[in-house]
Design a binder for these strands. Sequence first.
DNA 1: CAAGATTGACTCTTCAATCTTG
DNA 2: CAAGATTGAAGAGTCAATCTTG
Lengths: 173, 173
Amino acid sequence: VSDFLGTGRHLSPVELRAWTGFLDSGRMLEHVLANHLAEEHQLSHREYEVLVRLDGNGGRMRMTTLAQQIVASGALVTQTIVRLEDRSLVQREPAQSGDGRGVEAVLLSKGREALAESAADHAAIIRTLLTDRIGGARLADFADAAQSVAEHLRAHRRGESCEDPDCPAARYG
Amino acid sequence: VSDFLGTGRHLSPVELRAWTGFLDSGRMLEHVLANHLAEEHQLSHREYEVLVRLDGNGGRMRMTTLAQQIVASGALVTQTIVRLEDRSLVQREPAQSGDGRGVEAVLLSKGREALAESAADHAAIIRTLLTDRIGGARLADFADAAQSVAEHLRAHRRGESCEDPDCPAARYG
DNA sequence: CAAGATTGACTCTTCAATCTTG
DNA sequence: CAAGATTGAAGAGTCAATCTTG
């Protein structure tokens, strides 16, 4: 096998385990979640995420803010909201801020109901398939690590030059 | 806010941090990776994954095995291989096992070259954006946790009833 | 001209149906 | 009939272009 282990060209065994475990479990977990939400609650995972974020922000949010929070493009948020609007779970309004360009998505009572019906299932899946597998003691460390990685990636995608000297990642678009 | 914290209906703060950090960082990392591979090496992330797995298995693998390893549907593997075959990075052959139904994807020299050209960049991105962020001490724990979650999810998707009594996840398809 | 949002064209991915072999 | 693989249609997601407002 053409391997350059230790020369920095390839990932070390631990790095590889972390990466593949991370990637695979993320894909499978989203798969299970998407299937369950679609079959039992007629919601795509994106639609559920939109409802959750809206509920967590007083039921009203700007399209762009929504896009940043669920890590999606603006176009996707528009399409998702359109679908939710067709089913009267959500409604679009001109932004309260007075900025004529802004649009806010507003959570409707039917959307709240849909969320109430599916939230327990959603939480149970995350718990049984993710957090319970890690265990109480290690969970906080895991959460810290994941948040730290996410935070760094957010900065990276905003194009911010990294303060950290051992971070030559600015090159990767 | 309609919250039922502690009643088991919603996720606890730590659980929520673990889940959102996990989900968001996975999405962003795959995004960075996909963009870089596409721009610099004319490869989609899936195509890269196929090349890596083939190389790691002696350059020859069954379509179904490939699908399981990269967590994708059989149809996607077929289409990805077709694309790679069009560029002569890979070639399909009837399976050596003698089973007339089987098809094996074989890594060609051009595929090996493409992998050699992009592997260092790929590793550097994973390192600077994921594993270095977690740090040497915590990395092993993180890798263990991720692998454990992935392993459990694989069993779950195979429909295996979980030996663990606190695992009522069998209901979620 | 920049920012917020939307649209349309295109790619990626999945699902159901099909074909072939065991 | 089951398993491996492929095909075609449809959904989800992204990008580039457009429109409107600041």
